[in-house]
């Protein structure tokens, strides 16, 4: 009797959730639907992280992206004008540039996939990853880590500046 494993089934299910939701984000006409589909993508990605034994990243993905970013996105959508309208839409703009960009990035990705050397790794017992991540962040990668927070701060200030009424007039 062969030992069938659920692992690939779960993987493909999660991958399907992720990809289908991502398509929903891109193709939905309703911006609110896009945001909700984004939740599916994020949760699917979190699931994939779990399969990679990266439990901390998975949980933080949900905590930060779903609990924080997605909520803020929904919040922003709710505050936009004419939110009561049923027909709020994110129409697709600039199809030709998009196609070019898709072709370029797609080409790069296909090339990357074909040229990468796909090594199989021994399946290891899942070990807690928090210590490693913490140490890496606060020793080896402390500069990028701090720089990232500066970038976020700049983005925050920029957002405030953009939405100030008196500056825009």
């Amino acid at each position: 009797m062969t030992e069938i494993s659920l692992f690939p089934i779960v993987f493909y299910a999660l991958a399907a959730v992720t990809v289908v939701s991502a398509l929903g984000v891109a193709f939905s006409n309703n911006i609110f639907y896009s945001a909700i589909a984004l939740m599916g993508t994020l949760l699917g990605a979190a699931g994939l992280y779990v399969m990679l034994a990266a439990d901390f990243v998975a949980v933080v993905q949900i905590f930060v992206y779903v609990g924080g970013i997605l909520v803020l996105t929904l919040f922003a959508i709710n505050l936009t004008s004419r939110i009561g309208d049923v027909s709020i839409s994110n129409r697709s703009l600039g199809r030709f540039p998009a196609f070019v960009a898709l072709a370029l990035s797609g080409g790069v990705m296909v090339r990357a996939i074909r040229e990468a050397s796909w090594n199989m790794v021994e399946v290891r017992e899942a070990v807690p990853t928090i210590n490693g991540i913490g140490n890496a962040f606060l020793t080896e990668y402390i500069l990028p880590f701090e720089l990232a927070s500066l970038v976020l701060l700049a983005a925050l200030v920029g957002a405030v500046v953009l939405s100030r009424k008196e500056l825009r007039d």
Partner: peptide, 10 residues
């Protein structure tokens, strides 16, 4: 408390 003003809203 800034009651209104500042950000432009509908």
């Amino acid at each position: 408390v800034d009651r209104g003003g500042g950000l432009e809203t509908e």
